[in-house]
Simulated scan of single mutants.
Amino acid sequence: MNNEISETFINPEYGGSELSIMYEFYEQGTLCDVTIFAGEERFYTHRLVLAISCKYFRDQIIENPDIIDFEIAVDDETFQKILKFFYKGNIQLDLDSVQRLILAAELLELNVLFDVCCKFLAKHLSADNISDIQTFAETNSLNYLIDEVNKYDEQEISDEISGEENCLQLELEDIVNRLQTSKENISSTDSFEEVVQWISDDSERKQHLPSLLKLMDMTSMSFSVYKSIKITNEIVSPPKTHKIMVVGGKHDPIASYVDVYDPDTESWLETKVMNLKRTDFGVVQLQNYIIVIGGKRARKALNEVVGVHLDTMEASALLPMETNRKHLCVSSILDQDRVIR
């Protein structure tokens, strides 16, 4: 979160100059008669200040007037701020610590501080922190914050719909200007979708699509965008995609498993097995082969290099390395004129 955002809350119920004098005593360790254990620290303070400022402590002191020690489930940094709030009547709120303050205020029954902290957090909801605050609110059953998060989401949806409607009214020059000036603030996928919405609203605009596409970084766009927007079928061909191969990793020293993910179908293909007795090997794909390099067998590092055909999973020994290796990284430098035979 942005720790530069902060506000000072002044307690309207603050006791005034008498408590301010008590803060001087607190700093000097004068007349302190109770110890509070919070986090990794202990705080020597005044039971009278605790009783005046906090219902949680007041109830315990009234029930047991001789109590001299308290142990609370609040971290020391947060309690330091709260204790100073008792004495001085003000507290600094910031996005980095306000969630801890909310939980501490709820535990200590500091209702005024609790409400102020929740409102501070709701006031500074943004696209960057909405997910984190929603999780925090739902985990701790903070109904006010949950409602504020829902209101924020509804407003964002409303603004997005309004923005889409406004986009449809733009002229070609306006769209070009938006693409040229917003590259740093708008992703290629968002720009692409905006252009497609604009073109879809008027069939005559389709002729402008090729020139608009040149203003966008098509290489950074997700493949799903191409698949989901039919208007581009005659003009834009989906990029060539590569399957993702996962080799090894299962605890089986006799066989190594090969799993392949296909982005086109968004599915995992049938698992294949390489019957190679080794672990901790390096692997690289060259054309239709998996090249398995080194590894270990029976605790001994290997220099073996094996080519495994992706279709048949048949293994063929290749020229071994000059040194035995395990736990290795492998990379390929492709020569388009070379073909594995």
Rank of each mutant, 00 (worst) to 15 (best):
K296A: 12
S6E: 15
A255Q: 12
T78E: 03
H327S: 07
T30W: 07
D115F: 06
S182T: 09
S131A: 12
Y257I: 07
E156G: 00
N166Q: 11
L93G: 03
S222C: 14
G89P: 01
T139H: 11
T35P: 08
S224A: 12
D132R: 15
L103F: 01
G16Y: 04
A51M: 09
Q180Y: 07
L31F: 14
V112A: 11
S222I: 12
I175T: 15
N143V: 10
E234N: 03
Y152R: 04
Q99D: 07
N177S: 11
R205F: 01
S162C: 15
V149K: 03
D280V: 07
Y14Q: 02
V236M: 15
Q287E: 10
I68N: 09
P263I: 00
K272C: 07
V284R: 00
E71V: 15
I157V: 05
L101A: 00
M321R: 00
P210D: 09
S126Y: 02
N324G: 14
Y257H: 12
I244F: 12
I293H: 02
V273T: 07
L276H: 09
N177T: 08
K183L: 05
H124D: 08
K151Y: 12
T135K: 11
L170C: 14
P238W: 02
I244W: 10
K272L: 07
A38H: 00
V284T: 05
F223L: 15
Q285I: 06
V339Q: 06
Q336D: 10
H251S: 08
I91D: 00
T45N: 00
L318D: 06
S203K: 11
S228K: 15
K123Q: 15
S200H: 05
Q99Y: 06
F192P: 08
T241M: 11
A122T: 13
H251D: 07
H46Y: 08
D153I: 12
I291L: 10
E314C: 04
P263R: 00
N303W: 02
S17A: 08
Y152I: 03
G15H: 09
K250P: 00
K326D: 12
M274C: 11
I231Y: 04
R325C: 03
S228L: 13
E165F: 10
N64W: 13
Q207D: 13
K55P: 01
D337L: 04
Q169T: 15
E4A: 11
V339F: 04
Y14T: 03
S53Y: 00
F85S: 13
S158F: 05
G89N: 01
I61E: 06
F43N: 03
I291R: 10
S332Y: 10
T30I: 11
I10T: 13
D190P: 03
D94C: 14
L310A: 13
E18H: 09
E13S: 06
L110H: 00
S191A: 14
A137H: 14
E13K: 04
D75F: 07
K206M: 15
N303V: 04
K55E: 06
C54W: 09
L328Q: 01
I21N: 13
V176L: 01
V292I: 01
S126P: 01
L145M: 14
L310F: 08
T78M: 04
K227M: 10
K240L: 11
S200V: 06
